[in-house]
Design a protein around this nucleic acid. Structure first.
Lengths: 333, 333
DNA sequence: TTGTAAGCGTTATCAC
DNA sequence: GTGATAACGCTTACAA
């Protein structure tokens, strides 16, 4: 069933059918009704491919992320998809893992579908050298590229991100102000935002006159159990700490597991902070003080910017917003 | 830059260029090289829409779910996307929420993109009357429809699901066998699988000769805090229970919150079981005994079936597999 | 307001 | 092996 069939049955030309399809104003109410009726009867769906061929767009946007089952990324995907859908765009999802090779390879999958734009969700997409970011530059030559929680300065690449540096600086300051003297910082990667967060921790420590003679920051395995084991081992190695600042709620939840297992009282003896304000922070008991980095705001903003870009409006290359501390039971006041 | 440009520059016909593109064997090595070189030089990308028009497929599959940020659904999406991608298919994601009207509306978004098939993830897509399932039947008239964790008997609809009835029956039996005398069951919906699970609980109770004079099953609000409040209220109302069987890890995590808040010892005084074996079950302390309903297996199976269907093989309309009890710290042995 | 006809960039079916 | 040429199903000037 195509536009010709409908036009015959309705006794009009295909142009008129097309006009009805695109609800052009230049169709009489009578013919419109007639055509719509015939479409309905035959449960006609216009062929997306033919349509796209003419319009050179399928109103579809790509979403790339490392792992859509990650609690934080899953939220971002949810909000992006919702906003895109509300604007009449479909979402093509593609998970790449954390290897550059895979990222490049699977980007092709999206590009080969001629999506209208791509969101790269998570700072892990910004690599540390220009060559390794080549795939982003190439994508940006064809379509608008959005970096969520990442930043890269290049034509047709737009970044929307939380000021992670400031957020970690603030929360570390707060923990130090309430009496912590031997803070440690746990992180899961040194991606773009990973480095910014670490800098926030370091600067807060420096501001409080803490020495860095001993190591204070640690790359830590993520699953809850591994984090618990890691902290236990750290303690046994003689590293002493009275607060655990983390780059991620999951690490913080692991730290809570450690505290419960080792009998250290939270927050009296040990303060713990997370990041992302995800369900990990409320799932634990005690509930974890965390940074709300406004996923929803980030996503709605990004989609809104994209829609403006589609209308050939000039949009900012970089949009930064601040996070907020959500105080719960793992920190003192 | 299109196939004509390439054909001119390479001094061949568009047919030959197309053959090279689809690496047909009927091209001499010499011309193939020549054409590929020209493509490379001009960084030519074939137009996906034109290609799709000819092939009537863009090798893209739709994934519908209520909420992609739900821990369980996010996992399913992850595995589905991974498997589809490994088979050369892209994934179009669409979240519908739980209202029928929205489901119908947003299904159109996918259908209008002419996807090759649709996965409906979660039993909430199977409604209780044939009319309310009309949208599924209609979709199935055009493309293969897969119901994950749901079941509907109709042409071109394929179901892949865990035997939820048996799983809840088993776990309830185990809790009763280890001494529970006043079990209650908490559920979040009476979807297809919701009803199956409830039946499993009821039958297990009947097998153990428990009376149903008092209410034993409760529709319970889901967020952790609400579940805690709900159980506290239940207790105050005089409902006595020594085990909480739930349809969902999140409810179970809420029950753990309740136990911690009210000082009831788990599992000595109160046993708790979850469902899905999601991170909720390991995130809580004590960790929650749960049912592993094999999301990954479900997804790989479903995609594998779809690929066979694409090859016009005959595939089963219904595939059921069993879950497993994962014993942790909230139940006795 | 409606119809005709020319694209859009491929794939596929013929001949040669 | 290769090349014309006809689909594929739509959008959109341009005419009427």
């Amino acid at each position: 069933m195509n536009i010709y069939d409908i036009s015959k049955k309705a006794g009009v030309s295909i142009a008129t059918v097309s006009r009805v399809l695109n609800n052009s104003s230049k169709v009489s109410e009578q013919t419109r009704r007639k055509v719509l009726a015939v479409m309905e009867e035959n449960s006609y769906t216009p062929n997306a491919f033919a349509r796209s061929l003419g319009l050179n767009s399928m109103h579809t946007v790509g979403i790339m992320c490392a792992d859509s089952s990650d609690v934080y990324l899953a939220q971002a995907i949810y909000y992006l998809e919702r906003e895109l859908r509300n604007n009449g765009y479909a979402s093509m999802l593609c998970c790449t893992g954390y290897q550059l090779e895979e990222k490049e390879k699977y980007l092709q999958l999206l590009l080969s579908r001629n999506v209208d734009a791509i969101f790269f969700v998570g700072s892990n997409f910004v690599e540390d050298t220009p060559e390794r970011n080549g795939y982003l530059y190439n994508a940006a030559k064809k379509i608008p590229v959005f970096l969520l929680n990442g930043h890269l300065d290049a034509p047709n690449i737009y970044s929307v991100l939380c000021d992670d540096y400031q957020a970690i600086l603030d929360i570390t300051n707060e923990v130090l102000r309430t009496g912590s003297e031997r803070p440690i910082y746990l992180y899961r990667s040194l991606s773009y935002s990973g480095r910014r967060k670490l800098a926030g921790f370091t600067d807060a420590c420096l501001e409080h006159g803490l020495s860095f003679e001993e190591e204070r920051s640690f790359l830590c395995p993520v699953s809850l159990d591994n984090t618990r084991v890691f902290l236990t081992a750290l303690e046994e190695k003689g590293v002493s700490f009275d607060s655990v600042i983390t780059s991620d709620d999951e690490l913080a939840a692991g730290a809570v597991k450690y505290a419960l297992a080792s009998g250290r009282r939270v927050p009296e003896e040990l303060q713990i902070t997370g990041y992302n304000n995800s369900m990990f922070s409320t799932c634990s008991t005690p509930e974890i003080t965390s940074i709300d980095n406004r996923v929803e705001f980030m996503c709605t903003t990004a989609v809104s910017l994209l829609m403006q870009a589609f209308q050939h409006k000039n949009i900012p290359a970089k949009t930064v917003f601040s996070g907020t501390i959500i105080r719960r039971q793992t920190t003192r006041t």
